[in-house]
Write a protein that binds this DNA or RNA. Sequence first.
DNA 1: GCGTGTGAAATGCTTCACAGCG
DNA 2: CGCTGTGAAGCATTTCACACGC
Lengths: 214, 214
Amino acid sequence: MDASEKTIERLCLYRRLLVKGAFSGAKNVFSHDISKELGISAAQVRRDLMTIGFAGSSKTGYDVDGLVAKIGAVLDTPGGEPFVLFGVGDLGRAILHFFSAHQPKLRITAAFDIDPEKANRVLHGCRCHLPEALEETLRATGVRLAIVAVPAEAAQAVADRLVAAGIRGIVNFTPVVLRVPPEIMVETVDIAVAMEKIVCMTRLREPIQEEVAS
Amino acid sequence: MDASEKTIERLCLYRRLLVKGAFSGAKNVFSHDISKELGISAAQVRRDLMTIGFAGSSKTGYDVDGLVAKIGAVLDTPGGEPFVLFGVGDLGRAILHFFSAHQPKLRITAAFDIDPEKANRVLHGCRCHLPEALEETLRATGVRLAIVAVPAEAAQAVADRLVAAGIRGIVNFTPVVLRVPPEIMVETVDIAVAMEKIVCMTRLREPIQEEVAS
DNA sequence: GCGTGTGAAATGCTTCACAGCG
DNA sequence: CGCTGTGAAGCATTTCACACGC
């Protein structure tokens, strides 16, 4: 009935794979097909689909369209979920670009930046405002999710303001641990940690060169 | 002796917190101080520090400088680890900017992009080259880690090329499952999944509005 | 006291392995 | 047969809870 966070992440991957047409038009897939494409075990795939209550058949595997629909029913808000973006620097623009290119169900309906240069510009199809327009915009549109892509120093203040304005979930691209009330969801994408992690993991795989410069 | 991936991530957070001076010059911290700042349980903090073999004292807690040094010994390559960046779009520039601003131990020494407009430009202190310079640059500098921030369509080809040129670890900002030999480490930062996840998680926390439009 | 260090319990997640079915 | 669905086993990670030391 309830999927774990890990399962939710994998469901995103399954859907992306199926929608992308990796199996080029095939009506059905087997768990081991998905497994091979994503590097996730077939048993894991089967269990994930089991937990969302999607049944396959032993003869033909899983129906692709049905599975996409079922994953959508679990992951998506019916009608799609709009975001606002706070911070239109390089990263904010990258996110805007990314959204406008790929995402059907996810939309960024408004962006905000303290730089007056950017206010009322339209980037990748998204209008940019000054922060003072935030509350009014949220009231008018009822957007519940926000993306924070401002410099670290400003992150907590922006989060506070978003929460006060009624936001329910935040994707945080800042290396700051945001303090928000417990009912507000925060998902942090921490670029610096990803880098440091790969440094460490790569090093651990190569126990070779611990030589001493004598 | 060996820290799990989760532990490595948390060690990054501990160090960042300590270096940031969150405890403003204090010589020592207690596990519950760190706990409170990061929202990680104190028992978890103590166990992480135990697994890297860093001991505190019950009177004064953990020595800040010593702990920073110890975490550095676990995470860092002595002398610091350089990266190359592939793809200098908005996202690549955001990463460059981020590095040049914050990171001491991590450096991006060269960037690559197929756009000749960008070749030989210098962005945020980093010189940009055409892809054909990749192999030569890697040979000359011995860089072992790469960041992939190209459009999804190009990701696998870039990864293949990086691996062929001797790269050992990749931070992948692309929504593509990169196929690389098992000894190459890949850490994927998946922005789209983060978004979809927050949509889903926010929805699950609010079982209110499943109303039917009749 | 307080807080660390740490076995032991608890929880969560993944894989195994096999029954059952077309 | 080959594949799904799924208890049960196996790991991994986190938390509990308490001995020990300042």
